[in-house]
């Protein structure tokens, strides 16, 4: 019973993630899409918790759900979407895209489960990475210091870029 519960948890979350994702990309109203995106992201945060990545789960909730989705909502408010809502939802190529993507997923699934037998990645090792936050801090500030600084630079550039792009008139 002890080992069944975690896997039940996983499959419930997985179902939630996939269903919400499908709904996200099919809603006509962009605001609804964002709400369902939040549901997907919450599911993923739950999955992170389930894998003992507590810090990441927190970041997911704070940055993604608290930050990025709000950004999306703001933009939706700024851009007049009433026009768009009346128009055709999907581009003309949607049927062939779905078929191709389905085929790709089937192939990927085939490879993953074929690989799961031959490859050793079927068995998660025991134990967990604890204390999680401390380990991540060590990785970020010691091992990946340079990439970390570069990432901060990237954010700065993106911030300035977004301000310049969204400004009404340059000069």
């Amino acid at each position: 019973m002890q080992s069944v519960l975690p896997s039940l948890f996983f499959y419930a979350l997985a179902t939630m993630i996939l269903v919400s994702a499908v709904v996200t990309i099919t809603r006509r109203n962009a605001v609804h899409s964002v709400i369902w995106l939040i549901s997907t992201l919450l599911g993923i945060a739950g999955l992170f918790l389930h894998q003992h990545a507590e810090f990441l789960a927190a970041v997911q909730v704070i940055v993604y759900i608290g930050g990025i989705t709000v950004l999306f909502l703001f933009v939706i408010m700024l851009v007049n979407l009433d026009e768009a809502a009346k128009k055709k939802q999907f581009a003309g190529q949607w049927k062939i895209v779905v078929i191709c993507a389905g085929a790709l997923l089937a192939e990927l699934g085939f490879f993953i489960f074929k690989g799961a037998e031959g490859f050793y990645f079927a068995e998660p090792a025991g134990g967990s990475l604890q204390p999680n936050t401390q380990l991540i801090a060590l990785a970020l500030y010691r091992d990946y210091l340079l990439p970390f600084e570069l990432a901060s630079l990237l954010l700065l550039v993106a911030m300035i870029g977004a301000v310049v792009l969204a400004k009404k008139d340059l000069k």
């Binding site: 581009a91 190529q93 062939i96 895209v97 191709c100 993507a101 790709l104 192939e107 085939f110 490879f111």
Partner: peptide, 20 residues
């Protein structure tokens, strides 16, 4: 742009099918 991106998908599909 979406059609261009779609060509990436088909390329990926062909690539995986080759190994399949």
């Amino acid at each position: 742009v979406q059609l261009y991106a779609f060509s990436i998908l088909t390329g990926l599909l062909i690539f995986f099918s080759y190994y399949l």
